[in-house]
Design a protein around this nucleic acid. Sequence first.
DNA 1: AAGCCGTGGCT
DNA 2: TAGCCAAGGCT
Length: 289
Amino acid sequence: MQHPLASAVNAWYRENARDLPWRRDGFSAWGVLVSEFMLQQTPVARVIPYLERWLERWPSPRDLAAVPAGEAVREWANLGYPRRALWLHRAAEQITEVHGGVVPRDVESLLALKGVGDYTARAVAVFAYGDRHPVVDTNTRRVIARAVHGMGEPAPPSAPRDLGDMEALLSDDDIEARTFNAAAMELGAIVCLARSPRCAECPVRGLCRWVAAGAPAYAGPRKSIQKRYEGSDRHVRGLIMAELRAADIPVTAQEITRLWPDAAQRDRALAGLVADGLAVETGSGYVLP
DNA sequence: AAGCCGTGGCT
DNA sequence: TAGCCAAGGCT
């Protein structure tokens, strides 16, 4: 009653899944939500210690909502993309105010939370609550591109198409569907790698259209290249944020001036951080919100 | 809707 | 080395 590909990947997953905190029995829905925020564009290995510290300090959305957003940003430390900390704090406030402190279960309510998009909403509904939805992340998209479409890399993301592709593979059974959502991601994360896929170890190499076609090189449109970090506005923002996190008193404009020589770029970065709500100007300097 | 948003590890 | 990449989302 299940797609052969899903059946085989699930069997592999049951034997080979990594033991990750959010897969432990009884891990809370809040814990799943926090983990998904942290995992956005950030590798699993870097997330784990941050996640454990975070949940020890704020075991529920209400606990996080009770402290200033700046505390969340400081605890976020070097995880990167500090807006995620701000948004997670905002989401905790929304959960506390609108949902009685309980992480919502339906995708629509989850999507209304700040910082929660198509992936994260479905990941929470499926992995925290066990409901049946397609969950598609970058790993799943790559697995489907190769195994189903015979392409070396996925086409640019398209939610309707990606979710439809996944839906076509998903069992009617909630548990099998949930397992496959996790298993497709896991396969992409540890076997069907972007750079050097380990096809020799792949449980579905015999079903893979890309392998059957001789693993042809990707010929589609190139992904837009990430701009160089060194010397970028993001770099300057990162320097300023590190200074704000380290300080327990306001950081003066003069201290910020010392962080970067180019005044125009520095001003742009600082103004951007203020506009984003990551920095707040006071009479004596800048502080976390 | 393309560009922007941190940080660090890997090749 | 320098680029590529990592459980995305927002504007």
